[in-house]
Write a protein that binds this DNA or RNA. Structure first.
Lengths: 142, 142
DNA sequence: CCTCTTTGTTATCATTTGATAACTAAATAA
DNA sequence: TTATTTAGTTATCAAATGATAACAAAGAGG
C-alpha cells in the first residue's frame, strides 16, 4: 500500500463523507438562517466556547465577514458573546438557549436519518464502525 | 455502545473531517474559479462522467443554478458536455483536458500536505488507516 | 394521440458572500 | 514610553449564490 494510493482512497472517502453528510443534513436547518450561519453554529456547538478568530480560521472566512455573521446570529439571539477576563481583546462565543434549541432540533432530524441508515447493521458492524471512527480521528483527522 | 453515543461520535468525526479537509485544500484551487465551481469540478473528477441532475442532488443546488455554473465552467473550457445516445434529454459531464490539468494541480498541492500529515505514521498505522477508511466507506458512508 | 413527468435552459431579482479599507482598543515588545 | 502586533468592528462595493418563473424538448403511460 503506497502512500499515493492511500491519498486517492482519502479523496474518494472524503467525497463519500460529504455526500452522506449532505444527505443527512438536507433541510435539517431552520429556514431562518443561511447555510454559512448554520455552519458557524455547528462549529460553535461542537467546540464551545470558541473565539471569532478560531471561527474564521476554520471556516475559511475573513475577520470582517465572521464579525458580520456573528452580529447577525447575535441579533437573532442564537449566540452569546463573553469577554475574556485575562485578555480583554478576546471574546468567547457560545450558543444561547435559543441557539441550543435550534441546534438540538437540527441534530434530532439528522440523528433520525442516521439511525435509519444504520438500522440494518449488526452489533459487530457497529463495533467496527465505532473503532474505525476512532482510528481515523486519532491518526488522520486529528 | 448505544446508537445515540455513536451518533455523537459521528458528529464529532465529520466535524474533524471537515476541518482537516479545509486545512488540506486551503488555497489549493485556482483563483480563476469560485469555491462552488471547484466543488463541482471535484465532484465530477471523482465520479466521471456525471449528469447535471446528479450534481444538483449532491451539491444541494437547484437545477437552474447548476446549469448556470456548468455554463460558466464550459465557457472556461474546464468541462465537456456529451449527449446520451439513448435518452436524448440527458447529458454527461466530464472534465476537459484543461479541467483535468487544473484538478491535477490542485490534487498535487493537497497530496503534498497529506503526505506531510502522515509522514510520521508507521506502516502499522497506515494499514490501520487504510482499513478504517474501507470499513467506513462500506458500512457507513455508502 | 394526448397528458404527465423528467431533464435541462434562460432570464431576472433579492440576498448572501468576499474583499478591502479605515478604524478602535488592548496586549506586547523595543 | 513608543512602536508593533493581535483581536475585533464598521462600512462599502462587487461578485456569487439562491429562488423563482417561464420555457423547450424528450420520454413514458394511457
Amino acid at each position: 500500500m503506497d502512500k499515493n494510493a492511500l491519498f486517492y482512497k482519502l479523496v474518494s472517502f472524503t467525497s463519500s463523507v460529504h455526500r452522506v453528510t449532505q444527505e443527512l443534513t438536507k433541510n435539517a436547518k431552520s429556514d431562518s438562517i443561511s447555510q454559512t450561519q448554520y455552519n458557524i453554529l455547528e462549529y460553535i456547538s461542537v467546540g464551545q466556547p470558541v473565539t471569532p478568530s478560531e471561527i474564521n480560521d476554520c471556516q475559511n472566512m475573513s475577520m470582517p465577514n465572521t464579525s458580520r455573521e456573528l452580529s447577525k446570529l447575535s441579533k437573532k439571539n442564537l449566540i452569546e458573546k463573553l469577554n475574556d477576563t485575562e485578555d480583554r481583546r478576546k471574546q468567547y462565543i457560545r450558543l444561547s438557549n435559543d441557539g441550543e434549541a435550534m441546534m438540538n432540533e437540527a441534530f434530532a432530524t439528522i440523528e433520525s436519518r442516521f439511525l435509519k441508515r444504520i438500522e440494518n447493521a449488526s452489533i459487530e458492524d457497529l463495533d467496527e464502525i465505532e473503532h474505525a471512527l476512532e482510528v481515523l480521528q486519532t491518526k488522520l483527522f486529528y
